[in-house]
């Protein structure tokens, strides 16, 4: 649009009627803002203002029962030194445990999803009969509500009657059933397994879209030169899809950092899997401590904001490269 409007102005000056065109343009800009205002007000009401209130609450001792009566307590929710002991969110080992869990979950599941998504995308990029059907099949996990997949896998991973234990015992991998969701050593892996199952399709589809935009001449050149397919993948395909893959990875990282429903339903409030979102909601709703919960939410927001800035930076760099 930048182009067309500058063309308009140029045409207007050339025609010698800058005044009329100027008024029309101004009218159009006013119309644009009128059209934008409803959306901006809605976003402000549902996102901007609540975010500011959350940050504000994090400096108070508000409770959920009555959010109107509270005192400002400064940084006490975050960190306070009293009688030789540090208190507050940043001194709470449970919070750091939640941070550690979330980071572990994010790194492991996003890496697995990227690799598996790449494998699925490469397979779907080949021509074979029934390709449409296979693509439809991989969309199913993506469409299933997270709660439903958590319940489904909860049943499949059931310690006594679950099919996974049954299969593993049948194949001789284990002798006794494993308590996947209750055992603290296993429960995080159960969560990761379900998340990988659910979101690999997303990665695969985004990677596939990038693969389908690749120019075919590079491949013809590689084939003429007789280069091994694996080498072609690492030397040609991967560098070419890297920018799109990076965007998809950042999308998934942002999503994984705020993980809530899967963990809440699959392993409820177990400390072995508690994520930052689960921790914040527990403080906020179950313990009714709006101040402390808001402090946790604010820190989570800051972490995600940093990642978003990284994404915007990368996105701008990409757009600059395109132009």
């Amino acid at each position: 649009m930048t182009q067309s409007s500058s063309e308009l102005t140029v045409a207007a000056t050339a025609a010698g009627v800058p005044y009329r065109r100027g008024r029309l343009v101004r009218q159009r800009v006013r119309m644009a803002w009128m059209f934008l205002i409803p959306m901006l007000i809605l976003l402000a009401a549902v996102a901007g203002w609540p975010l500011l209130r959350t940050i504000w609450f994090s400096f108070t001792d508000a409770s959920l029962g009555d959010t109107s009566g509270y005192n400002l307590i400064g940084f006490e929710n975050y960190l306070v030194y009293e009688d030789g002991v540090w208190y507050g969110l940043l001194a709470d080992p449970e919070w750091w445990n939640a941070v550690k869990n979330t980071l572990f979950f994010t790194v492991v599941s996003v890496s697995l999803e990227t690799v598996l998504g790449l494998i699925v995308a490469l397979s779907l990029n080949a021509r074979f009969p029934l390709r449409g059907l296979v693509r439809a099949a991989i969309l199913i996990p993506w469409a299933i509500p997270t709660i439903v997949s958590a319940k489904m896998w909860g049943w499949m991973l059931h310690d006594q009657f679950g099919i996974i234990n049954h299969m593993l015992m049948g194949l001789g991998f284990i002798d006794t059933p494993l308590a996947w969701t209750a055992n603290p050593d296993l429960s995080m892996w159960a969560v990761i397994m379900v998340d990988v199952w659910k979101t690999t399709p997303f990665m695969a589809l985004l990677t596939l879209a990038a693969l389908q935009m690749l120019p075919s001449d590079c491949y013809e050149a590689a084939r003429v030169d007789g280069i091994h397919p694996i080498q072609v993948f690492f030397k040609v395909t991967l560098p070419l899809i890297a920018p799109a893959l990076m965007v998809a990875i950042i999308f998934r990282v942002l999503d994984a950092l705020r993980v809530f429903d899967l963990i809440f339903v699959l392993t409820s409030n177990s400390t072995a899997t508690m994520s930052m979102s689960v921790y914040a909601r527990q403080q906020l709703v179950e313990f009714q401590d709006v101040g402390y919960g808001s402090a946790a939410s604010t820190v989570l927001f800051l972490i995600i904001a940093l990642c978003t800035l990284a994404y915007l930076y990368l996105g701008r760099k990409r757009m600059g490269a395109d132009a």
């Binding site: 649009m1 930048t2 067309s4 409007s5 500058s6 159009r28 800009v29 119309m31 644009a32 803002w33 934008l36 901006l40 976003l43 549902v46 996102a47 203002w49 609540p50 975010l51 500011l52 209130r53 959350t54 504000w56 609450f57 508000a62 959920l64 959010t67 942002l254 950092l257 705020r258 809530f260 930052m276 979102s277 914040a280 909601r281 906020l284 709006v290 919960g293 808001s294 939410s297 604010t298 989570l300 927001f301 995600i304 904001a305 990642c307 978003t308 994404y311 915007l312």
Partner: peptide
Amino acid sequence: RVDFRGRGSVLLIVLAVSMFPQVAVLSGL
């Protein structure tokens, strides 16, 4: 369809909101 000053900022705000962790607005909302 319209080119105006602030267009880029509005798009940036919209993009930023899509990255919001839901739990960050929970108490305010």
